[in-house]
Design a protein around this nucleic acid. Sequence first.
DNA 1: GGGGTTTAGTAACGATCATTACGAAAATGA
DNA 2: TCATTTTCGTAATGATCGTTACTAAACCCC
Lengths: 199, 199
Amino acid sequence: MGRHREFDVEKALDAALCVFWRKGYEGASYADLTEAAGVERPALYSAFGNKEALFRKVLARYYERYVDYLPAALQLPTAREVAARALQGAIDLTTRYPEHTGCLAIQGVLAGSDEAEPVRQALIEARAEGEAQLRKRFERARAEGDLPETARPDTLAAFLMAVLHGMAVQAKAGFSRDTLEAVAEQALATWPAGKSTPS
Amino acid sequence: MGRHREFDVEKALDAALCVFWRKGYEGASYADLTEAAGVERPALYSAFGNKEALFRKVLARYYERYVDYLPAALQLPTAREVAARALQGAIDLTTRYPEHTGCLAIQGVLAGSDEAEPVRQALIEARAEGEAQLRKRFERARAEGDLPETARPDTLAAFLMAVLHGMAVQAKAGFSRDTLEAVAEQALATWPAGKSTPS
DNA sequence: GGGGTTTAGTAACGATCATTACGAAAATGA
DNA sequence: TCATTTTCGTAATGATCGTTACTAAACCCC
């Protein structure tokens, strides 16, 4: 029983996601969020909790709906294809929407006031989780002979993440897709070859 | 004539630099800055102007005193040495001080409120300036036969900057120096060889 | 069609933000 | 020693921050 909710929760989350993507966690004010969502302040609070809780919901939604290329990439047959697909996915994501370039999950890791520290930690953990998945995948690749015995899965994962993050920064700085694709190609030029190269 | 300044302007700038490095432009409040500098608010204002002006002074000081490895790297004889030195310099810089990891010039580019937009633009321009210097250096290297004719200086510069930025993000996420050095080594593995390899 | 329950919206909360009047203190020049 | 000039430090400015009482409206169940 009780009154029905008049606004669409999904649409409000999407609106909040756009604002956070563009301005980061601390750069987005509650006034920005309510205006984008077309919802009054107490309605947002009652629906999602405070700003931090709202951001965490948005972050989960972001990984689920926008970083879906990563789990897809992890299932490709070779480590090189995994890396290539991850790079291409990141380029798409960080340049597809002109109004919010870059990567939402990176826009808040770097700096902020002391009150934003828990949020920074959450973003760091999410980043580490993605890297761990890549590392495990590359360990499997080495076991399968897809990567040479001398290859170091942890280094390859860290390197790939570094390029991904660097491209996210560059996308935020206004780089074109073509430039980012040249960067990705250069990054792949180093990729160690396995025993058999699939034709 | 008039009363002498009681605090050391250089030390105050250094203190502000540390705070901005740790918290970014918007994350650092004037209360943080005055506390770190040990100077009352109006004294900082009269000495440096408002927060944005203070940040710009700090940014110039940062490039001058901490990113001095870049001009040094540009003068090395081969493009590969330039890249290797830039990577190593960035690793040093972003991991040397545990209390403020990462790169001050990156911590504010990514996101922020609308009022911080001019500062973001300034950081983007500074970043672009560094990349342009690298590109010109690699063009010279190609002309000198240090890089093959097929090498693309703009791509190499963009790639190198991507790795540098990615490592800055990772340093802020707590990566160890050893891990970053492995990343740099992997990045250098892609480097195109010139006509003559210096022994 | 009331009673109980949930939402919507106005309006305000205290805290902190960057910024600055203003008067006391200190130093120079005459 | 007095007048002038600059700095210092207290205290306050209006604005905005995230958050929340509180009241009126809308809904379900009995």
